[in-house]
């Protein structure tokens, strides 16, 4: 059994792997990491070898190897859905990665420094609207009018949201506009990098169909859905652990 742990800016994800995902768990990356990791291990069960990745990979003291998150994402994209490109929309940034046939990184590019294309942005906005994160897709699908959001700043975009609420716009239309603005950023990033071919979208934000569908409409190539996209990097890490220590 191999464990992949991805310590992201917002969430820490863990996957127990044995040729397939055996179990998985997610915790907020908050406060003291020891207890975060302890909780995760409690949820996920026993493992033999572990690989960590993500911005806080170094904090996982029981990991025997560390691997870059772009590498883990590339491996997961190739092994799980056989994709040539990955568009990862994480807690704070958007990364485009092109992947070779063996699952190695050919090139990658991260977006302009701005948190508004991120999962954190979506969280802030939905909470301002009083929409639970799980309800975002359903709400956005009910939109009947296209609105625009323009602000670069995640917190200031909130004042745009309040303006709309004030003008009597429906929550559904507003959350759809928020999803749109994230999708647009992701599309610009993909186009800048030249994503086409068979591609997948990973990261926490990829859970939201209202965003992935908008992206898929706007960029060429064949979109293939990643199962449990938030776990992609931790799956990649687990595969790294298996390759490193497994007796295949």
């Amino acid at each position: 059994m191999f464990l992949g742990v991805d310590v992201g800016m917002r969430f820490t994800k863990a996957v127990l792997w044995d040729g397939k995902v055996v179990s998985a768990a997610i915790e907020e990356t908050r406060g003291d990491m020891e207890s975060v990791l302890k909780n995760l291990r409690g949820k996920i069960g026993d493992f033999e070898h572990c690989c960590s990745t993500g911005s806080g990979a170094g904090l996982v003291d029981f990991a025997e190897v560390k691997e870059d998150d772009v590498v883990c994402l590339a491996i997961a994209a190739r092994d799980i859905v056989d994709a040539d490109f990955v568009l990862d929309i994480g807690g704070q940034s958007i990364t485009a990665i092109s992947v070779d046939k063996d699952g190695n990184v050919i090139d990658f590019m991260r977006n302009d420094k701005c948190a508004s294309g991120s999962g954190r942005f979506l969280e802030v906005m939905s909470s301002a609207l009083g929409i639970a994160v799980e309800e975002i897709d359903e709400a956005a699908s009910k939109a009947d009018r296209k609105l625009s959001t323009t602000s670069q700043c995640a917190v200031f975009a909130e004042s745009e949201v309040v303006s709309y609420v004030n003008e009597g716009e429906s929550k559904e239309n507003i959350i759809a506009a928020v999803c749109d603005s994230i999708a647009k950023l992701a599309v610009a990033q993909a186009n800048r990098f030249g994503i086409g071919g068979r591609y997948t979208i990973t990261g926490g934000v990829a859970k939201f169909k209202s965003i992935t569908e908008r992206i898929a409409e706007a960029i060429g190539g064949e979109y293939v859905e990643f199962p449990h996209p938030q776990l992609a990097a931790s799956i990649g890490a687990a595969i790294v652990a298996e390759e490193e220590f497994g007796d295949v």
Partner: peptide, 30 residues
């Protein structure tokens, strides 16, 4: 952006894209 983040970006780039670090793939599942 802090220097540690820049270092991380540069290393990711140099190891994976420039030096083309390649994992030894076992390819059993594909």
């Amino acid at each position: 952006t802090s220097v540690s983040v820049l270092q991380e970006m540069i290393l990711d780039f140099v190891q994976n894209v420039v030096a083309k670090k390649r994992r030894r793939r076992r390819g059993s599942r594909r």
